[in-house]
């Protein structure tokens, strides 16, 4: 089965450029602003969208994404509303892949089958669930594959060559390489180490490899885009959203537009990376 993710990565390969993958938290800071940002991401240069499912206890996330989850939850975000964001997005865009990213408990609580049905109906393409390693594949990964969704796994610097095959076995869509040992938004990766790691993963799989965790500036994004099939930026965008809040925590007028402006600058970095390298 060819999914939106497969098509998008194949098209980018044809064009000879890397994917710019953006992360925002669903419902951050509120449903309407979040939808405005989400809707504008493709035009701002996002090739793939990761949409965070807010959770009270995001164990693998740094302060920026923790805060975004809390903002969203405080303003009434729920799993249903996150799926509603996707459904509305799909009304105007049937091409840009959307990957839901988060933790297992809200999915488990809704019920795996109910969640998968609703996610497919809404137009979700893939899932990244941080606390489901391959050892727990029967929980969600296998049912998700049967439902036609891509299950994207994280590979990390601690995933050695012995472990990689198990991590890649049920992965589809793309592989997400976490470039540092640590939480989101912390230290920035060394481009050289990343290139080696990407090459190592590619020896084990034909899937595209996107790299994330710690990419904050257009220059860093461009660096990564030279060696990987995609560069993921999350905390930096979420921080840009945080800067748009007034003293009462509400989004200022024009917030979405300014956030999308920042996204555009990152996208330019990624999209021009290889052209610049070729010159």
């Amino acid at each position: 089965m060819t999914t939106r993710l497969d098509k998008r990565f194949a098209a980018l390969k044809e064009e000879g450029r890397a994917a710019f993958v953006t992360f925002i938290t669903g419902g951050d800071p509120d449903f309407d602003t979040s939808f405005e940002v989400l809707k504008g991401l493709p035009a701002a240069g996002a090739d793939v969208i990761e949409l965070g499912m807010p959770f009270t206890d995001p164990m693998a996330d740094g302060p920026a994404i923790q805060a975004s989850s809390q903002r969203a939850l405080r303003n009434g975000a729920t799993m249903k509303k996150t799926l509603e964001l996707v459904r509305r997005f799909r009304d105007g865009d049937n091409e840009t892949p959307i990957v839901l990213m988060g933790y297992y408990n809200p999915i488990y609580h809704m019920g795996v089958e109910t969640f998968l049905t609703r996610a497919c109906e809404a137009g979700v393409d893939g899932l990244i669930v941080v606390d489901l390693p391959p050892e727990e594949d029967d929980e969600l990964c296998e049912p998700a594959m049967r439902a036609g969704l891509n299950f994207i796994r994280l590979a990390t610097p601690t995933t050695d060559d012995r472990r990689l095959p198990a991590v890649l076995a049920n992965t589809s869509g793309f592989v997400y390489y976490v470039s540092i040992t640590g939480i989101t938004g912390s230290a920035s990766p060394e481009a050289r180490n990343v290139a080696d790691a990407v090459a190592r993963i590619k020896r084990h799989t034909p899937l595209p490899v996107a790299v994330g965790f710690g990419i904050k500036t257009p220059a860093q994004a461009a660096d990564i885009a030279r060696t990987a099939d995609g560069a993921v930026v999350g905390s930096a965008i979420v921080d840009a959203i945080a800067k748009e809040l007034d003293s009462e925590g509400r989004a200022k007028p024009g917030a979405a537009e300014r956030v999308l402006g920042f996204v555009r600058s990152l996208a330019d970095g990624v999209h021009k990376a290889r052209a610049a390298a070729a010159e």
Partner: peptide, 19 residues
């Protein structure tokens, strides 16, 4: 698998799994 009936398990991020 570290389970007591359906409870327990190893629901951790990949970085921690090898540890």
């Amino acid at each position: 698998r570290g389970r007591f009936g359906i409870f327990g398990g190893r629901f951790v991020a990949e970085t921690l799994m090898p540890l």
